[in-house]
Computed example of a mutant assay.
Amino acid sequence: MPVPPPTGPLVTRSTLIADLRALGVRPGDTLLLHSSLSALGWVCGGAVSVVQGLLHTLGPDGTLTVPTHTGGNSDPAQWRRPPVPQEWWAGIRASMPAYDPAVTPSEGMGVIAETARRWPGALRSAHPQTSFAAVGPQAAAITHGHATDCSLGEDSPLARLEERDARVLLLGTRFATCTSFHLAEYRIPSPRRTVMGPAVLTPDGGRRWETVTEIDISGDGFDELGAALERDGGVVRGRVGAADARLFPVADAVAYAQGWLARHRS
């Protein structure tokens, strides 16, 4: 079968920069980016051009942060999408590579996030399942001290981004991807549970499975939560390439989510 021609618009680094500026991204900003390359259109240079455009728009004083999560580094007994046969569990537990911030690729975060993770000078947080990577002068402060028993709470990069007046940029993604809403879950009464996993490096270069006690976090309802935030005027909306883009402060999203989740979750 013939290969269909690409669909537009044609997106270049220059058009990305113009669209990001029109949306309100400013030099010196600290951004938390959730992104979809395919939503942008036909991007000349792919994810590299997107990261270049973002860093150019932010300038030397700005910092770009992306989620670089690795949810597969977990106990296979918990896997549901898809599950694996129970007879595989012991083999997976015995052989799962330990999380290494320098080499472990992100999972399901998109090629733009993975490109930013590998960018020269990028730093990555230590959490073996919910890490973030950052490029720019605030990268060390944002990624430092990510506790193993605090996936997306007060000892995670999300709280550091909130302190630095960062903004969220949803670039072709839904509110369901907005990790900032999870920080609000840590600030309302939430059940805690003890789980096995992930596999972590030991000081001698080996590996072990770590048991942690964490709250139950869930993205259920985040699209409805985001729509409510948008209706109440907390979101700037525009277009970057062909993608719907949304820009809003981390702190506003967290504060709004605290109230919304308290009313809508039992």
Rank of each mutant, 00 (worst) to 15 (best):
L225G: 13
Y99N: 05
R192H: 15
A133L: 13
A39T: 09
A242W: 01
T63M: 04
G205Q: 12
M96Q: 06
V240D: 02
R93Q: 10
L158R: 00
Y99M: 05
G28Q: 12
G259T: 07
D19S: 09
T143G: 03
V43R: 06
V235I: 06
G8N: 05
A113C: 13
S151I: 06
V250P: 00
H127W: 08
L40Q: 08
R81I: 10
D29C: 01
V48Y: 13
G241A: 02
V135H: 12
L23F: 11
H144E: 15
A77K: 11
A98Y: 07
R80V: 14
G121K: 13
L40P: 07
S125I: 01
L247N: 01
P27R: 09
W209N: 11
H34G: 08
D223W: 14
F175E: 12
G72A: 05
S180Q: 02
P27W: 10
P67H: 08
A140S: 14
T143E: 07
L170Q: 06
Q86Y: 08
T7W: 01
A113K: 08
A113F: 07
T211P: 10
P83A: 14
M96V: 02
Y256R: 02
A227K: 11
D204T: 12
R93G: 07
P105Y: 08
D244M: 09
R81P: 07
V195A: 14
A243W: 00
P6V: 03
L123R: 15
A94D: 13
D244G: 07
T57K: 05
C150D: 06
M196G: 13
P249D: 04
P76H: 03
R239C: 01
P120C: 13
G71W: 02
V250N: 00
P4G: 06
L158A: 01
A122S: 15
R160P: 05
P191G: 15
I188A: 09
G259M: 04
D216A: 15
